[in-house]
Amino acid sequence: MKLSDFFVPEAVIPELKATDRNGVIRELTASLAAAVGMDEAQAAAISKAVIARENQGSTGFGKGVAVPHVKHPAVKRIMATLGRSSTGVDFAALDRAPVYIVVLLLSPPDNPDQHLASMENIFRHLQRDNFRRFLRQASTKEEINENIREADELPGG
């Protein structure tokens, strides 16, 4: 599985407007929903579910990244996108540090194996210092998507 199998490049937000966690989740969900043609009511329901999930435990594992996610019936296929914040967002991360890269992952409820495969893929790349550094330095949607494409082409995917 590659990032490009489930990443929606059009939905990438190079500079998030929101500066708080819930705002960032709403902004990314709306962007993803618009890119795949989901209506606003569905987007609102999904972002509410993502926030509820995040309240149960932070998806900010440190290193300035967070991966808010949810399994939701309105989601028909697995999809993800990415938002970048240059100011940093408080995600109540494990290391208490602000988050600069937010990957939103939405999965249908009936495919837990694919959900785990996507998570593995996201974290494998986010663990690489270079990937995180390039993403933080990227200032346009094109640059971010180029980084994602290049990550997919690395040996071992």
Binding site: L116, E120, F123
Partner: peptide, 12 residues
Amino acid sequence: NPMEMMLLEAVR
């Protein structure tokens, strides 16, 4: 390390 643990892709 939770980030490393997610790399196990440990499905049922």
